[in-house]
């Protein structure tokens, strides 16, 4: 087993996901299955092959530096649960 239940808990925490204790074993097993699959791929000899940065054989998709109007202030805040002084109100950020 490459991944322990503690690793799963840590990753869930980093991702802001709640994983019930009851499902911890299932997730741990699935994580390991994914890594085992990656192990199979690791066996392929990739010497001399450029790493793939993107799946599409496309590069240099660029736009000119021209400023345009985005959405209105009201539209921007229309989904905000709370608003304060024209900003998205968020809870305390420091412990």
């Amino acid at each position: 087993m490459k991944v322990s239940a503690d690793d799963v808990k840590y990753i869930a925490q980093l991702s802001r996901l709640t994983v019930p204790e009851t499902e911890m074993e299932k997730f741990t097993e699935q994580f390991n299955q994914i890594l085992n699959y990656a192990d199979i791929l690791q066996k392929i000899d990739t010497a001399g092959i450029e790493p793939t940065a993107h799946v599409l054989p496309v590069s240099n998709v660029l736009r000119e530096d021209v400023a345009k109007e985005g959405v209105t202030h009201e539209e921007a805040l229309s989904n905000a649960p709370a608003v304060h002084n024209g900003g998205f109100k968020v809870p305390r950020v420091i412990e």
Partner: peptide, 30 residues
């Protein structure tokens, strides 16, 4: 393509991309 002007009223130079709306796609400024 939102403006980079400094000192404007809050949240007036925003769009789906810089507000992180699902499905909005970034395109790099040359």
């Amino acid at each position: 393509s939102c403006s980079t002007a400094f000192g404007s009223a809050p949240n007036t130079h925003v769009c789906p991309v810089c507000l992180g709306m699902p499905g909005a796609l970034p395109v790099l400024n040359k």
